[in-house]
C-alpha cells in the first residue's frame, strides 16, 4: 500500500485500455517513460445508457448486475514488462470512469463486486440531476470528469464548485480531445474557463485521455497548452504534478473509509541501511506512519 502512496511525477491518470493490448504494451510503456511520465492510470469506462434496455429484454436483475462493472485489467504482466525494461519508479493504476444520467443506475454500479478493485474512480454526470447528485455527499469518487464530445449542460455555481472541492473531488481536463478536433476543443475550453471563473481553477488537473499514442504530449508541452485553458504557469505545473498526486492519496483514503492514518511494516532496503550508517544514528523504528490529511474526520 505504501507503494501506492509514494508516486513520482509526472502523472497521466487517464490512458485508454486499448493502448495496453498484448502486442503494444512494451511500446506504449516505453513511449510514456521517454516522455517523462512515471505514474499512469489505465482507464476502463462504463456507461449506463444500455442498462435500461438490458433490464427490459432480460427481465432478471442478477445477470445485469454481474455484467455491470467489468473486472479491472490485470496489472501483473504490465509490471513484469516495466521490470524487464528497467523503467525506474514507474507505477500503474486501474481507473474506472462511470458515465451516468441518474442516481439509481449509479448506485447499481457501486454495489457491483468489481467496483472496489479499482484504484481510482471517475464520474461523468450527463444530466443536471446527475450533476446535483454528484454534489451531494452520497457519491464516493475521486475524479469529476467531463466528456468534451457533449456540451456541458449543468449549471455550475460557486457554491456547487466549493462543495465538490470539499468532498475531495478533483476536476479533470483531458487534453487529447483538444488536439483532436475543433468542436471538442471549444467544449473543453468552455468548461475549463468555467472552472476558472467559478472556482479559480481549484483542484483542476490534466490527463491525456488518449486513445492513440500520437495524441500524448510531454509534460512541458502541456504547461504551455494550459494558457488556452485559463491557467497560469504555476497552476499548470501543479496540474500535472501536485494535484494528480493528491488524487492518488485521496483514492487511498477513500478505499479505507474514514481513517486518519494507517500503520504498516516497511521492508528495509539496502539503500536505507547505507544512509543510516552514514548518519551514524541508531535505527529507531521499523514502523512507518503516514498521515493522510485529506480524509475527513
Amino acid at each position: 500500500m505504501l507503494k501506492n502512496i509514494k508516486t513520482e511525477s509526472f502523472y497521466d491518470l487517464c490512458i485508454e485500455e486499448s493502448l495496453f493490448l498484448e502486442e503494444n504494451v512494451e511500446e506504449s510503456l516505453k513511449y510514456l517513460y521517454e516522455h517523462g511520465y512515471r505514474t499512469i492510470a489505465i482507464n476502463q469506462s462504463i456507461n449506463d445508457d444500455n442498462l435500461g434496455a438490458q433490464k427490459k429484454s432480460k427481465g432478471s436483475n442478477k445477470k445485469v448486475k454481474n455484467s455491470e462493472v467489468p473486472p479491472p485489467i490485470d496489472l501483473s504482466p504490465l509490471i513484469e514488462t516495466v521490470d524487464k525494461l528497467n523503467l525506474r519508479g514507474f507505477q500503474i493504476f486501474n481507473r474506472l470512469t462511470i458515465t451516468y444520467s441518474n442516481s439509481e443506475t449509479f448506485n447499481k454500479f457501486i454495489k457491483s463486486n468489481h467496483y472496489k478493485k479499482y484504484h481510482l474512480i471517475a464520474i461523468i454526470p450527463t444530466t443536471p440531476e446527475a450533476h446535483n447528485y454528484a454534489c451531494s455527499s452520497a457519491v464516493e469518487a475521486d475524479i469529476y470528469s467531463y466528456n468534451p464530445e457533449n456540451k456541458f449542460t449543468a449549471r455550475l455555481t460557486r457554491k456547487m464548485y466549493n462543495k465538490i472541492v470539499q468532498h475531495g473531488y478533483y476536476f479533470e481536463l483531458q487534453y487529447s480531445h483538444a488536439i483532436e478536433d475543433s468542436t471538442k476543443r471549444k467544449n473543453l475550453i468552455h468548461v475549463s474557463h468555467m472552472y476558472h471563473s467559478t472556482g479559480k481553477s481549484k483542484n483542476v488537473f490534466f490527463s491525456s485521455g488518449a486513445k492513440n499514442l500520437n495524441l500524448i504530449r510531454n509534460p512541458y508541452d502541456i504547461l504551455s497548452l494550459g494558457f488556452l485553458f485559463g491557467l497560469n504557469e504555476l497552476q499548470c505545473k501543479s496540474c500535472v504534478q501536485h494535484t494528480p498526486q493528491q488524487v492518488i492519496i485521496h483514492s487511498v483514503g477513500r478505499r479505507h473509509g474514514k481513517a486518519l492514518f494507517f500503520v504498516e511494516n516497511v521492508e528495509e532496503t539496502q539503500e536505507n541501511d547505507h544512509n543510516d550508517l552514514s548518519n551514524c544514528e541508531p535505527q529507531k523504528k521499523k514502523i512507518k506512519m503516514i498521515v493522510d490529511a485529506d480524509v475527513e474526520t
Binding site: A178, I179, R217, S224, L225, F227
Partner: peptide
Amino acid sequence: HRFVTSVIPLIK
C-alpha cells in the same frame, strides 16, 4: 510567445 507555445502541441 505564449500564443506560439500554446499552439505547438496542437499541430498534427
